[in-house]
Amino acid sequence: MFSQKLFFSVMIIFLFLQVGYHYSQYDLIKYILYSLEITLLFIGFNFFLKNKVGKEAYGGLKYLMLISSIFIVNYTLNGLDGIVDSIKIFGAIIIFLATTLIKLKPNILKRDKIKVIIMSGIPLLVVIMDKIIGFQESDKSLSIFVNSNNYIFFAICCCWLMLLCNVSKKIVLVYILISFAITSTLGALLSICIATLFYLRKRVFKLKYFLLSVLLILVGMILFDNSDLYLFQRVRGTMNVVSNLLSNYKFSQLSEVGFGEAMKISGSSDGSDVSFLFRIKIWTEILAHFLNQGIENILFGIGFGQIPNVNSFGLVAHNDYLTWLVEFGLFGFLTIIVGLITCFKKLKNTVYIIPYLTILIYFFSENLFYNFFGIVLFAYCTALSIKKNRNESITN
């Protein structure tokens, strides 16, 4: 039986296993974790098939069948090398569909809130510990512990889940502020600002919201100019590099600028201020390779997990939308986009649009969709938000 209680319990078990692997690197823990992931997906899919009711449930099943057909053609063209990555995508869809059918309790139980807080707190403690003892961004880490970008993706989903479970908004605010303070994720910071502005788009000209907006802008400007937090130092450094590059080059020439030259302009010792330039370079290479493929690969993709093989950096795209287009093909890309837009329309006038839109924007600068733990939580929160919003509308 797929339920909130089961989902929270399994996710906490996942977390403890990931922490264990993160610090021990025992392969046995990794294999146990993989087996539990498959088990969760099987339970969710079985629950959906047994309980599917209504037009939307059948629409969800048709969606799953459509994307499965596209992926089968992809496997036929390119082989099964990336099948593990595609399972993660199926996992997100399956968890979404199963969540739409669970029965919501009229009141959130205290023990469920505690589970959500535990789920949110464990990775935060690990990230803080990593900052102290130096394990952060280990090459052998799994899921949310791979790097700070994956952690902040998870943290945003946890804030979303806490809101859904009526956890105190003060706890949610403190949690996300601490998470941003100890990481250096400019993309996530920009994403959440844009998403918040979108949510307030109809209220910003009301007096109390206008004054609050002005106050927040002033605080942001003060922090930008004076704060010694690494996050704000990166903002200042990046803006300085962009300003200098655009004054000397046209935008179309940025992909030709060398990192050494950009590093001199930034004065950065670790290259953090020129990460945007790296993205421009890698996106250009990947897109050029894709457009030179045959029509069948353009329509159905070059194969899952193949992007590191088609760029000079040997890295992922750092852009989920580009990853979907190149690896899944045009048909797969459009299928995923239609699903995301459909959810957007259902959430755009609710407070849940803030975390949802934040993550959609964040997809532009990172590779997060292959993060099983994070993407499953994202799918769960999206479905639960739509379900709660629908129930509240019916009640009203």
Rank of each mutant, 00 (worst) to 15 (best):
Ser3Thr: 09
Val10Ile: 13
Ile13Ala: 08
Leu15Cys: 14
Phe16Gln: 03
Phe16Met: 13
Tyr23Cys: 12
Tyr26Gly: 05
Ile32His: 07
Leu33Lys: 02
Ser35Phe: 13
Gly44Asn: 03
Leu49Ser: 05
Gly54Glu: 05
Ala57Thr: 12
Leu61Asn: 08
Leu61Glu: 10
Leu66Thr: 09
Ile67Asp: 05
Ile67Leu: 13
Ser68Arg: 10
Ser68Phe: 15
Asn74Val: 01
Leu77Thr: 02
Leu77Pro: 05
Gly79Tyr: 08
Leu80Met: 12
Gly82Pro: 11
Val84Asp: 06
Ser86Arg: 13
Ile89Ala: 05
Ile94Lys: 10
Ile95Cys: 07
Ala98Met: 06
Ala98Trp: 06
Thr99Leu: 12
Thr99Ala: 08
Leu104Glu: 10
Leu104Lys: 06
Asp112Asn: 06
Ile114Gly: 00
Lys115Ser: 08
Ile118Tyr: 09
Leu124Pro: 09
Val126Phe: 09
Ile128Gln: 02
Met129Gly: 04
Asp130Met: 04
Phe135Gly: 13
Gln136Arg: 11
Ser138Lys: 10
Asp139Ala: 15
Lys140Tyr: 13
Val146Ala: 14
Ser148Ile: 09
Tyr151Pro: 11
Tyr151Lys: 10
Phe153Arg: 00
Trp160Phe: 10
Cys165Trp: 03
Val167Gln: 09
Val167Arg: 08
Ser168Val: 11
Ser168Gln: 09
Ile171Val: 15
Val172Glu: 12
Leu173Ser: 09
Val174His: 11
Val174Glu: 07
Ala181Trp: 14
Ser184Pro: 06
Ser191Asp: 02
Ile192Trp: 01
Phe198Leu: 15
Tyr199Asn: 15
Lys202Val: 10
Lys206Cys: 05
Lys206Arg: 07
Val214Lys: 01
Ile217Glu: 01
Leu223Ile: 14
Ser227Glu: 12
Arg234Met: 12
Gly237Thr: 06
Gly237Asp: 06
Val242Pro: 04
Leu245Arg: 02
Tyr249Thr: 04
Ser252Gly: 02
Gly260Trp: 08
Lys264Val: 10
Gly267Trp: 14
Gly267Arg: 10
Ser268Lys: 09
Ser268Tyr: 09
Asp270Ser: 15
Asp270Phe: 15
Phe276Pro: 01
Phe278Met: 04
Ile282Cys: 05
Glu285Asp: 13
Leu287Arg: 13
His289Ser: 15
Phe290Glu: 03
Asn292Gly: 04
Gln293Phe: 00
Ile295Val: 04
Leu299Thr: 00
Phe300Ser: 00
Asn309Leu: 15
Asn309Glu: 14
Val310Lys: 03
Gly314Ile: 08
Val316Leu: 10
His318Met: 14
Leu322Tyr: 14
Leu322Phe: 14
Trp324His: 14
Phe333Val: 04
Gly339Lys: 05
Thr342Gln: 03
Thr350Gln: 07
Val351Phe: 11
Tyr352Phe: 11
Ile354Pro: 04
Ile354Thr: 04
Pro355Val: 02
Phe364Ser: 15
Phe364Trp: 11
Asn367Gln: 13
Phe369Asp: 06
Tyr370Gln: 07
Tyr370Leu: 09
Asn371Leu: 01
Phe372Ala: 02
Val376Met: 12
Ala379Trp: 07
Thr382Ser: 12
Thr382His: 05
Thr382Ile: 06
Ile386Ser: 07
Asn389Ile: 01
Asn391Ala: 13
Asn396Phe: 12
